[in-house]
Design a binder for these strands. Structure first.
Length: 747
DNA sequence: ACCTCAAACATTTTT
DNA sequence: TGTTTGAGGT
């Protein structure tokens, strides 16, 4: 017991063995921060602390999942399941579902995503007859979000003169009205947006002492990863929860704070020191991840920031290769160079696609890389952008699910009431909406009582509304009886979506149809992989806060990773390319006026650099295609800030020099879009089918949940291929190979 | 109520 | 450039 700590260095060990009382771990990039957190939890468990009493808040659900697995291995016990571990949002959503009635919500409240919130704001602005150019949806959304993250409710807003003045100057005199209405409408829809999950948790702890005591006594040990990226409301929640035992451990790095636009506040680190004056501080400064040149370059960059804590990151690793800075003629040229570099490294060194990451400032930059990779046959996966659950057709189906579970969900209602078209148009919807506002009830209530409403709606339309209500009511009834899979299938068929999509033979339509099938298969997998029967609401709870990163598929294992720098936080790769190193792009145009914004961009670049283990490539283009035309670009100021001794300037070798690259690009792009109009990383490809072929009956396999077993037989083909597996501990299971993490141990 | 086409708009980062 | 929105026709 406890000797697993031998894997740690002296500093790490000290931090991991911290037992009681508050502590702060300041940890540079690659210093084994997550490792310390993991070992500390395992250590606590080994000292007899029950996993039930440990709360660990991580930045992504994926990080939580991996940590849980490692803790299980370390402590050798199978009780890590009882740890409360996940993102702030997912952990608090779980608490809120348990305590929902205290806050007057049903436990099956909907979680509105950004799109839902924006649609709601758009509707409110329209209803109130406000100028949509002044009351811009995205601006309002951000403003409301930042208010909530600072625990300023619509009522509190009226007490902040400076806020009101700021809105008056921006000619948004009605902002308070919009904010109030937004909050009311969310409540009326039994919905919480992302920020409400935090806000309402704080309200719960603040206004309900019995709940506060319950969770204070439950979570006797609290650990928080990436503390530098917590915001004010998260700080308030943590402070409340930790007040009784003060066994709070935060881990972070001020130099990697990159989420201030989301309300993250370095002040939280400073406040920690005053809130818990007897805290113990640990510093992890040795970098185990990156080569010497990379560490040196990162240090030389971050030196340019005025505001930062005293810390020296160093490494014993070899100097390694110099960092390559590469100039390209255009964004497409840049992408081709990167594709060629990836291929040449693969040829000369022992490496895999998964060892490469392409990092960029904005999501839009992925497109030209994608084109170059598709052309050269480099397999890749994209994180961020539109997640699977946000794709239009998927969200349409999910909206039926949502409405069936929570009939008040107005955004879901608006989405599906006339999809597929059933003769309930915008005029009717408008009338219902106005009536709902007038009577201060939900739109669903108006529809439920449509025959008694004095509305100028044609009787034929009234009947359509009645039919629609009957259908949803039926689904709602079934949702308590049927399993998630059975009901999901029934909803897709009965609602007419199945029929509608099947008729569409265009490539896009076929793709949409496949996505719905993938969704249904996912639900099936969800049902089959749980011991107790799962209802549709369980599935919806599970996916509400999931990102693409959280349910990475086995198929995507060996691919080059494309992601924004923000999304790359906490990850590492042997080969890293940071692209678009240009003024106005990185640093972003929006940030160059304010020094604090600029410092955040610099920290962002610091994060990007320190993702690299062996080699780092930085590139910029002289011309970039933006807003429909080529724009001349200057190299980023950050390049000049890097220590020259770490850099190697490389003149580009263009493999297509003899051809004008524009025309080559256009030609390729056209021919490609004809063949393959829309590729999503989850779409099956040859690579995957090959992989699925390798599952045979008799193979010994390992599953992440069920442990070891062997394949009894294999059924189906292509992407619906499944294996019937006899597991040692949990018996027989039917697993869809496309989805499950089934590793072959022995063939 | 629904479909079609042209004008307008867009690019910061995310749970 | 690609997507979304709204006006106008059916």
């Amino acid at each position: 017991m406890g000797d697993f700590l031998k894997d740690l260095n002296a500093e790490q060990k000290k931090a991991a063995q911290h037992f009681d009382g508050p502590c702060m771990v300041i940890a540079g990039p690659g210093s084994g921060k997550t490792r310390v957190l993991t070992y500390r939890i395992a250590y606590l468990i080994s000292k007899g602390i029950s996993p039930f009493n440990i709360l660990a808040l991580t930045f992504t659900n994926k990080a939580a999942k991996e940590m849980r697995k490692r803790i299980e291995n370390l402590s050798g016990e199978n009780n890590s399941y009882n740890l409360w571990m996940g993102t702030f949002h997912s952990v608090f959503a779980r608490i809120l579902r348990i305590e929902s009635e205290k806050l007057n919500y049903p436990s099956d409240f909907t979680i509105y995503d950004t799109e839902d919130s924006k649609n709601l704001i758009k509707n409110i602005v329209k209803e109130k007859g406000l100028d949509k150019d002044i009351y811009k949806t995205s601006v309002l959304k951000n403003r409301i979000s930042s208010l909530k993250n600072n625990f300023i409710t619509p009522d509190d807003y009226l007490n902040h003169i400076e806020l009101i003045e700021a809105d008056n100057i921006a000619k948004r005199n009605e902002f308070s009205n919009v904010y109030t209405t937004y909050a009311q409408r969310c409540k009326q829809s039994s919905a919480m947006d992302f920020d409400d999950l935090l806000l309402n948790t704080y309200k719960l702890l603040n206004e309900h002492p019995e709940s506060l005591h319950k969770y204070q006594n439950k979570f006797t040990y609290i650990l928080i990863d990436e503390y530098q990226d917590t915001n004010h409301i998260q700080y308030l929640i943590i402070k409340k929860l930790a007040a009784l035992n003060e066994n709070i451990c935060v881990v972070g790095d001020d130099a990697q704070s990159i989420y201030s636009f989301r309300g993250a506040n370095i002040q939280n680190i400073l406040d920690f020191k005053t809130d818990y004056p007897d805290y113990v501080e640990y510093k992890l400064e040795q970098n185990y991840r990156s080569s010497g040149n990379i560490v040196d370059a990162a240090n030389s960059l971050i030196k340019n920031n005025k505001k930062q804590f005293d810390k020296t990151v160093w490494t014993r690793n070899n100097k390694g290769n110099l960092i390559v800075v590469c100039k390209a003629q255009s964004d497409n040229h840049e992408s081709r160079l990167i594709a060629n570099t990836v291929l040449s490294i693969l040829k000369s060194k022992k490496s895999n696609y998964k060892d490469f990451a392409i990092l960029y400032r904005t999501n839009a930059q992925s497109r030209s890389i994608e084109d170059a990779f598709r052309r050269t046959g480099i397999p890749y996966k994209i994180y961020g952008g539109l997640s699977f659950y946000q794709r239009r057709e998927v969200k349409d189906v999910l909206s039926y699910f949502r409405l069936s579970i929570n009939q008040s969900d107005e955004e879901a209602l608006r989405r599906v009431i006339n999809y597929p078209a059933r003769g309930i148009g915008s005029t009717t919807l408008q009338k219902i909406s106005i009536q709902a506002v007038k009577k201060e009830v939900s739109m669903w209530e108006i529809i439920s009582n449509i025959e008694n409403e004095e509305l100028n709606i044609h009787s034929r339309t009234r009947n359509k509304l009645k039919e629609f209500k009957q259908m949803i009511d039926y689904f709602t009834n079934q949702s308590n009886i049927k399993s998630a899979y059975n009901l999901a299938e029934e909803i897709v068929k009965n609602s007419g979506i199945y029929h509608q999509l099947k008729q569409d033979k265009t490539p896009e339509g076929v793709n949409r149809f496949e996505n719905i099938q993938e969704l249904i298969n996912g639900i099936k997998y969800f049902c089959e992989n749980n011991t107790e029967e799962k209802k549709l609401k369980d599935f919806m709870h599970e996916i509400a806060l999931m990102t693409d990163q959280d349910n990475e598929k086995d198929i995507d294992y060996n691919k080059v990773t494309l992601m924004t720098i923000h999304a790359s936080k906490g990850l590492e790769f042997p080969y890293v390319f940071v692209i678009g190193m240009e003024e106005n792009l990185f640093p972003s145009m929006m940030s160059i006026e304010s020094s604090s914004d600029l410092e955040e961009e610099r920290r962002l670049f610091y994060v990007a650099i320190t993702r690299a283990e062996n080699r780092l490539f930085l590139s910029y283009a002289v011309n970039r295609f933006r807003w429909g035309q080529y724009i001349q670009c200057e190299p980023s100021r950050f390049l000049a800030e890097l220590d020259k001794n770490c850099l190697e300037k490389q003149e580009p070798i263009d493999m297509h020099k003899k051809q004008p690259y524009n025309s080559v690009y256009r030609y390729i792009k056209k021919s490609h879009s004809n063949q393959n109009p829309s590729t999503h990383s989850t779409k099956p490809n040859n690579n995957q089918t090959k992989k699925l072929e390798s599952y045979n009956s008799g193979s010994k396999v390992q599953h992440s949940h069920f442990g070891k077993g062997f394949i009894i037989r294999v059924e189906g083909s292509g992407s619906s291929k499944k294996a019937i597996v006899q597991f040692e501990k949990v018996g027989q299971k039917h697993l869809l190979l496309k989805f499950c993490n089934l590793k072959i141990i022995d063939n």
